[in-house]
Nucleic acid binder design. Structure first.
Lengths: 346, 346
DNA sequence: GTTAGCACTTATGGATAATGAGTGCTAAAA
DNA sequence: TTTTAGCACTCATTATCCATAAGTGCTAAC
């Protein structure tokens, strides 16, 4: 069991290391700790903390830096979210502006920008999850020539579209029939259900009612796939570059690659669903290239429209208290903005 | 005036420096030059070249590296494009595949990927220029609730769309009228012309025929703006990281920022229209951060559909001969692919 | 015009030493 | 039992010196 003073030492080591990036020695702790004890006493405490695996040396006679376990202990037992400065709240408000956003995703994308500007880290945002959506409508719009646009409208008002070139000899009434079949049979189902039906009974249905069923299945399938694909927005990609030095350019590249691949991002952000805000240290993740980073993930809820995710990626030595406070405030603000959008849309 | 042997020395310095990245000395030139002369003779030639400003030393007793003027001279007077290896041609073919691309931009985007993979540099591609396009059609599709999608079709079959929420109290017949006005009055004009009219007589026209004209002008204007915006595709962004070292991370960031801003890219790629393929050295550009890079720009023509641009960004010490040969072959292939798309579409 | 020879310059890399921040341990003080 | 002063020890960092190697310019001979 750790003594009260040992905890204070740990806390101060984390604070100082976050601020300066330098290992922290007993002498400097003496001046920054709130009580007065000799440096020898602090050294004893530090030895205890090191024994407990919470701090470590970079070499045999160096000051101490927090270990992964140290951060974890801090995060789980000691951290309290900081109040968000009034200025930051105002910046958020102002950055959202009172634009009429055309699409939900515009708001979500803007969120990534705001968060990265505010923190100087990399922000990732994700709209309300798509699995909760149902199919609201399907349109096929002739564009001229043999081109048409297929459009899917989901229950939250989000829209996906894709342009297709119809195969030779497709008749107009077939297009009408295809639209009718989808709207009659599939509207109201959840998008995953629709995808299911696309595999099973829809092909037969199309065969029965259309003289030239070719292409319609793919057409609808393609747009549907777009609609069920989670879209990640990344803000402040380049901020990552501040946390790698010359010999680690390879790792930086790896991380950038992860950031640019939504399936990898998905893995990265799939935090435990219990906590609304959770922190994962890079050393707890499988990727070697993330070892000096960590990820703070926050979930936000937009009434019956489901939950979404926002996240920050920054160095493991991050001012967690401040960042968690900020994310907490931001998720509230984002939820409010999205609610406004939904209300305004109907 | 430079002697024949001096030119050969210059050529060999550029070749060797491109290959090794090391300054080139008189001894090593002795072994790689095709004729046999003593190193002292080569030193004399090098002194002449340095006098002419074509090569320079990194320090007083170092070998020589090409200067900006040296590269420029090489590019303007000595370079001949290399034949493209059969393997590369096949890679291009295979990478395009025989997919049915939905949109022109999909082909253009894929081009950026192919080029960056093939060269390990950063590739930028740009579709056929939009100013040649005319307006082919305008659609407004009701999506449910007060939401509609506005769609512009251009003469090349490219499509832009945007979702809007109609203001309260807009009547269905007004939507019909708006569609009719645009299609009757504006179709067939070039997109810039349409933009012009949007400023002048269209507002009055809408006022005359609609009971609730609010919003329609913006709606059409927004989508039109999308349609006349050049879209840049970038492949191999991360390859840029190979050409900056630890102390230049700042510059790397600057370059990345340029790459991500289409207006800056536009400036970067606005090569002289004379040459189908032109090279600009970073030192000839205004940005300090580009000083060690250069940009090869190639134009491609797709029949009456206008011209487009592809470009490579890489280190100033690039194998220009090879790259120019490759770009030349690629622009032909891309033009062919786009032609196929247009023909297949109609 | 070309070449051999030579003095000179500079980057690079290793060895050595001084400096300083920090540690652990011991024994005395509280 | 806890805290503290004192001290020997460790290691990264930095500077200095030195040898080496690659390269140059110049001069005089070919």
């Amino acid at each position: 069991m750790l003594t009260k003073r040992e905890l204070m030492v740990l806390n101060e080591i984390i604070r100082s290391y976050t601020e300066t990036g330098q290992p922290v020695g007993s002498k400097s702790l003496q001046t920054t700790l709130p009580m007065h004890v000799s440096s020898a006493t602090i050294r004893n405490d530090m030895a205890a903390l090191e024994n407990a695996g919470l701090i470590m040396k970079t070499h045999s006679s160096s000051g101490r830096v927090p270990s992964a376990a140290g951060y974890r202990y801090y995060l789980d037992h000691m951290l309290t979210p900081a109040r968000v400065p009034e200025a930051d709240l105002q910046t958020i408000q102002k950055s959202f502006g009172d634009d009429n956003y055309h699409r939900i995703d515009d708001i979500v994308e803007q969120s990534a920008r705001i968060l990265s500007n505010l923190t100087s880290y990399t922000a990732i945002t994700l709209g309300p999850e798509v699995s909760a959506l149902t199919l609201e409508g399907f349109r096929i719009v002739p564009l001229g020539g043999r081109q048409v646009m297929a459009i899917i409208v989901s229950s939250d008002g989000s829209v996906q579209n894709q342009v297709f070139t119809l195969p030779d000899g497709v008749k107009g009434e077939d297009v009408e029939s295809a639209i009718r079949i989808v709207n009659d049979q599939l509207v109201g189902m959840s998008l995953p259900e629709v995808a299911q039906h696309l595999q099973t009974d829809v092909p037969a249905m199309l065969m029965r009612h259309l003289t030239t069923p070719d292409g319609f299945l793919n057409m609808f399938g393609d747009v549907l796939k777009q609609a069920v694909t989670e879209r990640f927005y990344v803000g402040g990609r380049l901020n990552l570059m501040d946390y790698f030095d010359a010999d680690n350019i390879g790792e930086l590249k790896d991380v950038m690659r992860i950031i640019d691949h939504s399936d990898e991002l998905n893995r990265l952000l799939s935090a435990d669903e219990q906590n609304p805000i959770s922190v994962r240290l890079g050393s707890e993740l499988s990727d070697e290239s993330l070892k000096n980073l960590s990820v703070i993930t926050a979930r936000y809820a937009v009434g019956e429209h489901g939950q979404g995710t926002i996240a920050l990626i920054g160095p493991t030595s991050m001012p967690y208290s401040k960042m968690i406070g900020l994310l907490d405030a931001f998720r509230g603000e984002l939820a409010k903005r999205l609610m406004d959008y939904y209300n305004h849309m109907q």
